[in-house]
Amino acid sequence: MTTVTTRTVEYPADGLTMIGHLALPAGVDRGPAVLLGPEGPGLSDVERRRADALAELGYVALAFDLHGGRYLSDPEEMLARCLPLLADHDRMRGIGHAALDVLRAEPRTDPDRIAAVGYGTGGAIGLELGRDGVNLRAIGTVNAL
């Protein structure tokens, strides 16, 4: 197992201060990166662990935030925030671009080798980045219907 360095990153998006989780692989070289989007309730330890696992494989990984550092465990509160968000492509793109800017600003990130992976709402944001013409190597989404 390689040594992974992690840190919390704060950045503005959607009128909130987002709190993401950045995981860096061992070494000092630039490498491929993954933007990791959470499900509707928001960033949790599940996505943080996934980012860490990607860093163990040699990727710079940013698990991004949806709700300004909050995890919305109440389904009604989550839907009240996510449904209008999912209906507003510009808002989704804004959240995605803000997180992507943080990932690109990391000196270890190779800006020509970035992929997006997301679950639910985070996956929809990844797709919106693709629709917006962002140069991503791959986009993967997981949605439960």
Rank of each mutant, 00 (worst) to 15 (best):
M92T: 01
M92W: 00
H89P: 02
A105Y: 07
A55N: 08
G58T: 12
A115C: 03
D88C: 05
D88Q: 04
L129G: 02
D29R: 14
L57K: 12
C82H: 12
A116N: 03
R104G: 02
E128L: 00
I125K: 02
V60N: 11
G69D: 09
E77I: 15
V102D: 05
M78C: 15
H67L: 10
I125P: 02
G69K: 06
G42K: 07
D65S: 05
E106W: 12
H89G: 08
G68V: 09
G133Q: 00
A98G: 06
P75Q: 13
D112M: 01
A87F: 01
G69I: 10
L103T: 10
R30G: 10
T109Q: 10
I125W: 04
L129P: 02
G126N: 05
A63F: 09
R81D: 15
L72S: 11
D110C: 05
L62A: 13
F64P: 08
E47V: 13
A99D: 07
L57W: 05
A55M: 08
A99Y: 07
R131P: 01
L35P: 04
H97L: 14
R131E: 00
D110E: 12
P41S: 04
D90Y: 00
P25D: 08
A53S: 14
R108K: 13
E76M: 14
R70Q: 15
D90C: 00
R108S: 12
E128I: 00
L103S: 12
G118E: 04
R104Y: 03
D45N: 12
V102I: 11
A105K: 06
D88V: 06
A138V: 04
